[in-house]
Nucleic acid binder design. Structure first.
Length: 194
DNA sequence: TTGTGTTTTATTGCCTCC
DNA sequence: GGAGGCAATAAAACACAA
């Protein structure tokens, strides 16, 4: 029966002095160089390399196997670190958005109070005097030059519109409901579980 | 010097492919 | 069924603080 490659390898190991030795710097350098161009060299290539470096073909094969394992583990470590960095960045962004959200809510409250106050004043004036109104029912004021213009009321109207807009943002900008995120992404990543 | 942690070389067992 | 790859692990070699 013809010996298999495994037999030949096993025999060659036994023929060695049976001492485990680290490879020399030169051997490592050559192996590293080869690994850079081909991480899974063919049998023939490994045999040639082994002959050139004075190693057993099996030792070269094992070195490549171990090197692939080390390389994979380093790559995984790198990917893990990159993910961690982007996770941290996302967390910072979330905190900034949260603060912005809170500040907008405060602004919204102020505007509402302003509107309420103005409504009250308007009621008082309405009850005391007859107010000239424009086509849209808005109060029409007349300045000293006799030009009609929209008075402070229109400013309040603009504020009210802004406030309504903010209110819509407030409702839509809800991390709990995740509607702020596009629904089609249906993100269930724990990254959002702050 | 020695105890301990890390790295490197080698083995084993299982899996896939031809 | 053999060849070769991978994961898990053993064991030797090495680094280094105490």
């Amino acid at each position: 029966m013809a010996p298999t490659n495994s037999d030949i390898w096993a025999q060659s190991i036994l023929c060695n002095d049976n001492m485990r030795r680290r490879f020399s710097d030169e051997q490592i350098k050559s192996l590293e160089n080869m690994f850079e161009t081909e991480s899974r060299p063919e049998l023939r290539t490994k045999q040639q390399l082994a002959k050139r470096l004075g190693l057993q073909p099996r030792q070269v094969a094992i070195w490549f196997q171990n090197k692939r394992a080390r390389s994979k583990s380093k790559q995984l470590e790198l990917e893990y670190r990159m993910l961690q960095i982007s996770y941290d960045n996302l967390g910072s962004k979330y905190e900034l958005l949260k603060k912005e959200h809170e500040s907008l809510l405060i602004q919204l409250q102020r505007l509402r109070k302003l509107m309420e106050k103005d409504e009250n004043e308007k009621d008082v004036i309405k009850s005391e005097t007859e107010v000239k109104q424009d086509d849209f029912g808005l109060p029409l004021c007349e300045d000293s030059r006799g030009i009609d213009y929209l008075g402070p009321e229109s400013d309040i109207l603009d504020m009210a519109q802004i406030a309504d807009g903010l209110s819509e943002i407030e409702n839509g900008y809800n991390f709990e409901s995740r509607t702020f995120l596009h629904d089609n992404t249906a993100c269930t990543s724990p990254l959002w579980e702050f």
